[in-house]
Design a protein around this nucleic acid. Sequence first.
DNA 1: ACCTGAACACCGTTCAAGT
DNA 2: ACCTGAACACCGTTCAAGT
Lengths: 240, 240
Amino acid sequence: MSMGKVDRVRAKAAKRARRRPLSKQAMVDVALRIVDTEGTEAVSMRRVAAEFDTGPASLYAHVRDKDELLRLVLDRVIDEMEVPTADAWQDVVRGFAHNVRSAYQRHADVARLSFAHIPTGEKVLAGSERLLRAMIEAGVPDRVAAWALDILSLYVGADAFEGWIMQQRFSHDARGRPVAEVDADFVASVQHDMGAMPADRYPYLARALPVMTSGTSDERFSFGVDMLIAGFAAQIPEQP
Amino acid sequence: MSMGKVDRVRAKAAKRARRRPLSKQAMVDVALRIVDTEGTEAVSMRRVAAEFDTGPASLYAHVRDKDELLRLVLDRVIDEMEVPTADAWQDVVRGFAHNVRSAYQRHADVARLSFAHIPTGEKVLAGSERLLRAMIEAGVPDRVAAWALDILSLYVGADAFEGWIMQQRFSHDARGRPVAEVDADFVASVQHDMGAMPADRYPYLARALPVMTSGTSDERFSFGVDMLIAGFAAQIPEQP
DNA sequence: ACCTGAACACCGTTCAAGT
DNA sequence: ACCTGAACACCGTTCAAGT
């Protein structure tokens, strides 16, 4: 009992009416949802297409390739950042770093995509402008301010990406166990990887290893930003 | 005219004798060669296996999965680094950063793999030990030294990875053209991405953009390291 | 311009079977 | 323990054909 031609055409039309129309916007929605639940590696053209009840070829009318789709996802995420509003330039830098990191952290491993391209959303432009103005008005040389923006972006992306990986790695073991215990396990596993790391050959390393994971990841991140700020500050020439 | 059973057995034995035997070592050799010529994304279990005239399943007797193979590749690369020998702690930090970066730079985008795991080769352990000793003996607090190692590793990996991507992106256009021209094109393309970036709305950004690509990538990297060093130095408590 | 089915040339990993 | 062929369940992208 097969469908007649008219039935098939009707079914097709009904299906098309039911589903959302394809568009860059809608594709980014779907891709971002996949990123949030399973990470960037789980995004595939076929899966995105399937959510629109079509094949992967359909997507190529809206994006050049998978890379462009992922770039659009990053742009969407980075546009969630809040523009820093502090007065002191140091606080603007801290705010910028913190706000970009927060946006990344809300979306699994999107930060991985940040190395591949320069984001150009409204918010990140406004945030960058704010950062540059604050630094330059405080007497930081143009070149230092420009490079500072570059370095900060790199550091924030790397920290957010690594943070996600570490979290993934220990979310398997750490099923609601105390943090201290998970930390101890981490130190033990690294020591094991380092071939038991003889404390007599690497005394400083042996001493430093437990310290490396001390404090929260937020504290370590803030520390890094403050190190950079101190460096930038030292580049302000003496007032005559 | 098909081969008899004896012939087939002989051909198989001859083939086996001719080719290199499988081993972690040999697999890493092959994978690293692929990385060097085509990048980490070009490495596949099937391609590595093909170089040994066998199927991908054979590799799984030596590594748990593709991830472990890539981790071994990174370990091999990081073990190419030279251990810094300077006296002043600042120079040890510079040497460490520079030597790790150099090792990465010799191997396409291997730096990408550095975010996913803590390297444990002989050289990087010795280098880390040297770094920690230099800093701690100079009066840097334990915690600052330990975190410094972490931050530096992150920054070096991110810089090397991004450097490779940028190089890739512009090696298409930049067929022996003057560097200044390629730089100008870069600025133009970013400006285009930023939606023409109205200079009246983002005056500081418009001014900073050409500056961001000023100097060589080595200079920008050294600048970043020096910013961190200045930050670490400020953490040395006053001598009583 | 937008959409589609089918095809091309690939993937990582598992498994039963062999040595 | 090491190796293999075959299979499973996927990939990104292209292309001719349709609307």
